[in-house]
């Protein structure tokens, strides 16, 4: 299957990665060949096959609902590109 420029622009938007024209063209070419490769799966009939969602056949364990709060606010904030006191700062979203 070939992936066209319009599709690349759509997925670029969905994945929040801006791409310029040159990169979009390259991606269209790469993804087309990758999807051609992937489409080999269509050779298989899988109507009656159960999808495998996890190889680990266990049920999730439950734990007591206890607060295990450590005061690590400062450590967390320290890694942010822009902060103001205890808050992460982002470009203005409300006028």
């Amino acid at each position: 299957m070939s992936i066209d420029l319009k599709t690349i622009k759509h997925i670029s938007k969905l994945s929040r990665i801006s791409v310029d024209e040159e990169r979009a063209n390259k991606l269209a070419k790469d993804l087309s060949s990758i999807f051609e490769f992937i489409e080999k799966l269509n050779e298989l009939k899988t109507d009656n096959v159960e999808p495998l969602t996890s190889v680990a056949e266990t049920t999730l364990k439950l734990r007591p609902d206890e607060v295990k709060s450590e005061n690590i606010r400062e450590q967390i904030i320290k890694n942010s590109p822009d902060s103001n006191e205890d808050y992460f700062v982002v470009p203005k979203v409300i006028e």
Partner: peptide, 8 residues
């Protein structure tokens, strides 16, 4: 589809 083939 991939999850089904994964099962196989």
């Amino acid at each position: 589809k991939a999850q089904k083939v994964r099962k196989l």
